[in-house]
Simulated scan of single mutants.
Amino acid sequence: MILEVSKEAAKWYKEELDLNEGDYVQFYVQLYGGIPTAHPNYSLGMSIGKEGNIAIKDVKEGITFYFNEDHSWFLKEFDMKVVVEREEITFIFDKNDNQ
């Protein structure tokens, strides 16, 4: 149950979303539409700001990327890496043994 944001991905978010050190990027679970994931019928949404209690996080380039407690179940069986490939954000899900 790990969230890992690469330095390059953090820089991408800072530039594309005009973020500053101390800002928060929340990943949350939604049905359909959005960023495809390892969970069938679920996708990821993203918002800027801090909401709820942070359960899983990674801080890179001064930005806190996180899942709050309500959505942390999403990574119970997976580790999620956020990287840049071909100048676009890519999400990589690896099955973990924390079931």
Rank of each mutant, 00 (worst) to 15 (best):
M1G: 09
L3A: 05
V5Y: 00
V5C: 04
V5L: 05
A9L: 07
A9K: 04
A10N: 06
A10T: 06
K11T: 13
K11N: 14
K11R: 14
K14E: 09
N20G: 05
N20Y: 00
N20K: 12
E21H: 04
E21L: 04
Q30N: 14
L31T: 14
Y32K: 12
Y32D: 13
G34Y: 13
G34E: 15
P36T: 10
P36L: 09
T37E: 12
A38L: 07
A38H: 15
A38M: 08
N41I: 07
N41D: 13
N41M: 08
Y42H: 12
Y42S: 05
S43M: 11
L44N: 08
G45D: 13
M46I: 15
S47K: 15
I48D: 05
G49F: 10
K50D: 02
K50P: 00
E51V: 13
E51K: 15
N53I: 11
I54M: 05
A55K: 03
D58I: 04
K60V: 10
I63N: 05
N68S: 08
E69N: 11
D70V: 03
S72E: 14
W73M: 02
L75S: 07
K76F: 00
K76C: 00
E77F: 07
E77I: 03
F78M: 04
D79W: 00
D79T: 02
D79P: 01
K81F: 11
K81R: 14
V83N: 08
E85F: 04
E85R: 15
E85C: 08
E85I: 12
E88H: 09
T90G: 01
F91P: 05
I92Q: 11
F93E: 06
F93N: 07
F93L: 07
K95I: 09
K95Q: 09
K95V: 10
N96P: 03
N96E: 03
D97A: 09
N98Q: 10
N98D: 11
Q99A: 09
